[in-house]
Nucleic acid binder design. Sequence first.
RNA 1: CGGGGUGUAGCGCAGCCUGGUUAGCGCGCGUGCCUUGGGAGCACGAGGCCGCCGGUUCGAAUCCGGCCACCCCGACCA
Length: 610
Amino acid sequence: MPISGYSVKNLQIGRVKTTSPLVFKNQNPPLKEIFMKLSKFLVPTLKENPADAEVISHKLMVRAGMIRKLTAGIYSYLPLGYRSLRKVEQIVREEMNAAGAQEVYLPVVQPAELWKESGRWEIYGKELLRFRDRHDRECCLGPTHEEVITDLVRREARSYRDLPINLYQIQTKFRDEIRPRFGLMRGREFIMKDGYSFDTTEDGAERTYLEMRDAYQKIFTRCGLEFRSVEADSGPIGGNFSHEFMVLATTGEDTIVSCDSCDYAANMEKAETGTRSVSFPPPAKAPEPVITPGASTVEQIAKFLGLKAENIIKTLILKTENGPVAVLLRGDHELNEVKVKNFLKVADIDMADAATIEQVTGGPMGFSGPIGLENIRILADRTIFNIESAVVGGNKPETHLINVDPRHHFKVDDSGDFRAATEGDLCPRCSGTLRLNRGIEVGHIFKLGDKYSKAMNACFLDQEGKERFMIMGCYGIGVSRVLAAAIEQNHDDDGIIFPPPIAPFTAIITPVGAKSEPINKVAGDIYEALWKSGLEALMDDRDERPGVKFKDADLLGIPCRITIGQKALSQGNVELRNRRTKETILAPPERVVSEVQKLIESWGQLPHAE
RNA sequence: CGGGGUGUAGCGCAGCCUGGUUAGCGCGCGUGCCUUGGGAGCACGAGGCCGCCGGUUCGAAUCCGGCCACCCCGACCA
């Protein structure tokens, strides 16, 4: 049934006659949005969870009618999902523009030649979807656009006068993931904002990097998300020029490490650990072998000898392309492979197999120790030197050594930080304590240096007329993943709780109870008033029972629900309900706009739902 | 790619082991009545190449073989 005062006829009244194709009249609000009726909107909500969904954001997005799967890792966005997606896009766009970046749109299909030039045709692996066109030319679908952008800029920017330049696009990417999962979180086709900067100097590139970092802070703040920017491993580039932006959510796949008293934060790969050194007297006893039958793991040895894992030093034998190395770690700590890789400057690290261990140590797997270990480089995590009396492997079957003092009883080649950070570790920057949290990576910024400009000969002439390589940076945001992450972070048992800036609508108007002319009239008036003040409202004009409307409104996660029913209306009021706090207030219709505005403004001050 | 699992109505599932009339159930959908503040009730109804191909059999959703798709764990990766 039509909302009182609104019919198709009214729609015509608002139509602007364009007198000339050169005259563009901007309408606010856009014409068609004046008719946001749920009865006409494709929002197929479901009561039950889809069988193939594992994570909450996937379940809720399907149930709320935001997305539908076409095939593995590939989704269609329905009107509601697309509205939210475009909100995220728009925030990204505005902040990128404000930071001086320019929007472009690059091809999805790319020629193999470019990828061969950068060397990635061979390196990239099977995630790069390759195919041939009718002329049998090799092509691929763009998983990222370093090659294309570098090619563009090297052709068009020849002088330092053309630089710096920072270009970005918001576009569909394709990565043929081995196992797509978690809905939008790890799809094969996804929407990404990728940006690339070209500077003339290292200093300039670093300035651009910091500008992008600021822009990213603004973007995720504006999206209404709780996030951290964390230091990430920047591999061969070095320095603090790789940051990941993580949305905090207990369901996140990544672990982030942050200090509880300073602003240090890093991902697990990068996270350093602080140490205090402990002093204790020289050893009173000499190492002594003990027979440890069948006890090869740290847990077994600790149990067998009746001590804690932290009194044990475990000796890991690793294989690298430059031969095996030994790494000593405290029994309760885990290896951080990236730290070892970076320290040794090697590309590959693997746990050694039993045969290699026997060959290197002379003993079986599970009984390796540093004493008597020769012809192998030994790295020690520095925490082992705080163990006064340690247990180590004996390099013989069923044998360990006790009473071992790491400072006196064996030698190591290098000591340093080689372990994974753990909850409660000392902060590497201050005297605070490290905490571990789960997060979802939604953005990554990276200083590329001249990796691509060198490979693809992207040069410019400097003031002296000398040819130099451009210094690049790249900056990604998983736009579709932001949406999923927002839901992982903001939901409850009833459904999604969208932060207002990325909600598909700000308010949903829910007329309930027996149909009556006054209720419909008020609903229509409120609807019009909200749109006129720039607040996007969805009218639930369906002929459904109140329970159905309430459940759907909760599921969709629209921040504010305005209920118009007989009871309150007889007192001259309508109800406004905050999706997040579930608080309901009464207000007369003419105050609805200001109350909705108030509700939205108060949103940021509240703690997040999770 | 290794291991495990599932394909039956739009969605969620039972039936399969032990072959046998017309393949069921819940939700959803259509019509009518009734109801109207948290996913109501009653009645009637529409909707199925039982994933695909082949085999066994008088007879296959059911047994056998092959293929395809999807899901989970792992490895991999952003």
